[in-house]
């Protein structure tokens, strides 16, 4: 059932996002061509440059926006009547939404890479782009093992942080759902409160780490780094689950 839920979320997301990605790629291509053929002055260029930057930012914003609305519309609005009548547990629903967010974060990242490749190819040449990637991979080979592990750790940390943030946003919407009015405002207020609490917690945690492990050992090669996002993900997901499973009250 999890796979099927993910499939339908993907369909819904694709419907909303593909025009934006098509526009992004089209604008990237046009912009790159303009630069290549020295058409880089005047009003038209300014407009296209502006549109290109807007599409870059817009695609990121749209991706986040549709991830958020997939959760709120799919589970907490009219479509929730369909979702919660399906023979699926609440935990599966939440897991599907988290996976949906990860999938689209990945696709968004991929699209930005595609844009870079397009720019590189059009402005320079395919050879240059290939060379660039070759160099990157060679750099990986040259880098010392320790550093590579550290880089990977940071990447894992960032992914875990992203998942925690997604779960936090879901939890905020769930908290908003507990109230019959001003649900969006309450969700935002909840986010702010959590941010404040988190920064306090983070500061004291760093202090603690310094006390325990000494200032030099604080970052990068420490497993400590990935524990907070995992714990927080668990907390947010549990809160979301509790509200959706026990306190659901669709309008």
């Amino acid at each position: 059932m999890l796979g099927k839920l993910i499939k339908y979320d993907f369909k819904a997301m694709f419907r909303s996002l593909y025009p934006i990605y098509v526009a992004l790629i089209a604008l990237t291509t046009v912009f790159s061509l303009m630069v290549k053929f020295n058409f880089d002055q005047g009003l038209l260029f300014t407009i296209f440059a502006f549109l290109f930057v807007a599409a870059l930012n817009g695609s990121i914003i749209a991706c986040v926006f549709f991830v958020v609305t997939r959760f709120s519309h799919g589970l907490l609005k009219n479509e929730g009547y369909l979702s919660f009548a399906l023979p699926v547990s609440t935990a599966t629903h939440i897991l599907a939404k988290v996976i949906n967010a990860i999938i689209w974060a990945f696709i968004e990242g991929l699209m930005l890479c595609v844009c870079m490749v397009i720019m590189g190819t059009v402005m320079g040449s395919i050879k240059e782009v290939a060379f660039f990637f070759q160099e990157v991979f060679r750099a990986f080979d040259l880098i010392e093992r320790d550093v590579l592990v550290a880089v990977l750790q940071v990447i894992v940390f960032l992914i875990l942080e992203m998942i925690a943030s997604v779960c936090l946003i879901y939890a905020a919407m769930a908290v908003g759902h507990l109230f019959s009015k001003n649900q969006k405002m309450i969700a935002v207020a909840f986010l702010i409160v959590v941010f404040v609490l988190r920064s306090f917690l983070w500061v004291s945690l760093v202090d603690l780490t310094e006390v325990v492990a000494g200032p030099t050992h604080m970052f990068v090669d420490d497993l400590m780094l990935i524990i907070p996002p995992i714990v927080l993900t668990g907390l947010y997901a549990t809160l979301t689950w509790f509200i959706l499973d026990r306190r659901l009250n669709l309008e």
Partner: peptide, 27 residues
């Protein structure tokens, strides 16, 4: 349990063929 809510609960972009596929998938 087959439940018919008192409102439009289906995603309105869906076509009949999408709906049939979805119901077959889940039920």
């Amino acid at each position: 349990v087959s439940y018919l809510p008192d409102r439009n609960y289906l995603p309105d972009w869906m076509k009949i063929k999408d709906l049939l596929e979805m119901y077959q998938d889940f039920y």
